[in-house]
Design a protein around this nucleic acid. Structure first.
Length: 423
RNA sequence: GUGGCUGUAGCUCAGUUGGUUAGAGCGCCUGGUUGUGGCCCAGGAGGUCGCCGGUUCGAACCCGGUCAGCCACCCCA
């Protein structure tokens, strides 16, 4: 790897791309605030057990993807592979009184040691929300509606909401047994992974992408049919809420999510502009046990991949245009003019609002400096050499019309405001 | 972790029956007279041909390894 290349699966992000990131963040704040969610920033690393306990020890994320290390005190720490665990930890630390709710959103980098591919990085970024301390299906519907509104506001059209339920833990043994009963006779015809899953994680056999397995899974017992009354009624109300809110969704009976803590509602939003990793966002309802024998907390949330949001936008032609380097370029001729150039630039930044002011300190020929001003996209070049300094004026050149005027220093700010209305 | 494709100047890429000082376009710098941009013209800078090793009289080109990128699997955001 070249000496200055970023590590595999990481990237340097430069303007104008950073402008697109800011767009994602600002719209997130705007939309989520309107749903009464507030911003939370948690640490990027946590004690390893925060993730192990929340995500489930048997998950791929925990088993083989975490960046864990021992710090100088010998504690095992981990760079967060996802956002929920840290958020739950923070809420538990602050304390949530009975009947209280916490609604938060966050965004930032996450880390997983996977092989990079399209839409998959080792350092990637998520925007997520968590609503903790509620057990209402209407909350699930609202949460999904908030996500679709966010996508709409970003101009991301063409996404699909895929919806399913996992039911309550109490329903699982029955469902698992039904699945095992169904799959066992088919197992010999299925892929190696599925044969292993038969004993380790039957549910995963439902969404295997191997064509042979997929065909078999299509005829598997429907989870929803096997649910207990409470679970089925919960799911029905989530669906009803979405319908009432005008959120279109598709039932995805074989949608299973990878983390152990999900109960009831699970969903994913996919987008055709992404390639193989087509999930734009995913989430669901969860119940997480806290250490110390306290009551489990229940909540609903989702996370959206920021890189994937950007890819989806890019596939729709939505990308920020680069800013011009400078609106006004200050050109200094001769050594005597350099310090006055520095001073003038500073003064104009105070006097002329949001204009981008750049001073050329190179001491190059006027020709070269003008070429630089042109390249920087400057609308005005302010030129000063010995003559202008002696006269206390500035030679103002309109880079568009090529007209020039000698303007007394005292009138310069007014001249600029007249020339550049945004000043 | 597995597989496929790829790796030549800042960028996009040419460059095979292996043979002298490795090319183009764009970009960059300088100049086209003394303080004037964009167009045009001329000149110039810039590359250990990803890295290491092997085959050969000789390798950007063949072979092996390695690193990296992209894509797919897997998993997920």
């Amino acid at each position: 790897m070249a000496a200055n290349e970023p590590l595999p699966g990481t990237a340097d992000i430069w303007e104008p791309e950073t402008l697109d990131w800011i767009e994602l963040e600002n719209n997130a704040r705007d939309v989520f605030h309107r749903y009464s969610y507030s911003e939370l920033r948690t640490p990027i690393f946590e004690r390893t057990d925060v993730f192990v306990r929340n995500l489930g020890n048997e998950t791929d994320v925990v088993q083989k993807e975490m960046y864990s290390f021992n710090d100088r005190g010998g504690r095992s720490l981990t760079l967060r592979p996802e956002g929920t665990a840290g958020v739950i930890r923070a809420i538990a630390f602050r304390g949530l009184e009975q009947g209280d709710e916490a609604r938060v959103f966050y965004f930032g980098p996450m880390f997983r040691g996977e092989r990079p591919a399209a839409g998959r990085r080792r350092q990637f970024h998520q925007i997520g929300v968590e609503a903790v301390g509620n057990d209402s299906p209407w909350m699930d519907a609202e949460c999904i509606a908030m996500l679709t509104q966010y996508l709409d506001q970003l101009g991301i059209s063409g996404s699909r909401v895929m919806l399913n339920t996992r039911g309550l833990p109490a329903d699982r043994p029955k469902i698992s047994a039904a699945l095992v009963e169904y799959f066992t006779p088919h197992a010999p015809a299925m892929c190696e992974d599925c044969q292993r899953r038969l004993s380790t994680n039957v549910w995963r056999m439902l969404d295997c992408k191997n064509p042979a397995c997929h065909d078999i899974a299509l005829k598997a017992p429907n989870i929803v049919d096997l649910l207990g009354d409470e679970s089925r009624s919960f799911f029905t109300r989530v669906c009803q809420g979405l319908k009432d809110l005008g959120v279109s969704y598709e039932l995805a009976p074989r949608l299973v999510r990878g983390l152990d803590y999900y109960i009831h509602t699970v969903f994913e939003v996919t987008h055709p502009g992404l390639g193989a990793q087509d999930a734009l966002a995913g989430g669901g309802r969860y119940r997480i046990e806290l250490p110390g024998g306290k009551k489990a907390v229940e909540g609903i949330g989702f996370a959206a991949g920021m890189e994937r949001l950007l890819m989806a936008r890019a596939s729709l032609g939505l990308q920020a245009q680069p800013n011009t380097e400078a609106d006004v370029m200050i050109l200094s001729l001769g050594d005597q003019a350099l310090l006055p150039g520095l001073q003038l630039a500073q003064q104009l930044r105070l006097d002329c609002g949001s204009l981008r002011i750049k001073a050329d300190f190179s001491g190059r020929s006027l020709k070269a400096q003008l070429r630089g001003a042109n390249k920087a996209g400057a609308k005005v070049a302010l030129i000063r050499g010995d003559d202008e300094l002696a006269q206390g004026c500035v030679l103002c050149r309109d880079m568009t019309s090529s007209e020039q005027a000698s303007v007394p220093l005292a009138d310069l700010a007014a001249w600029l405001r007249d020339k550049l209305p945004t000043a």
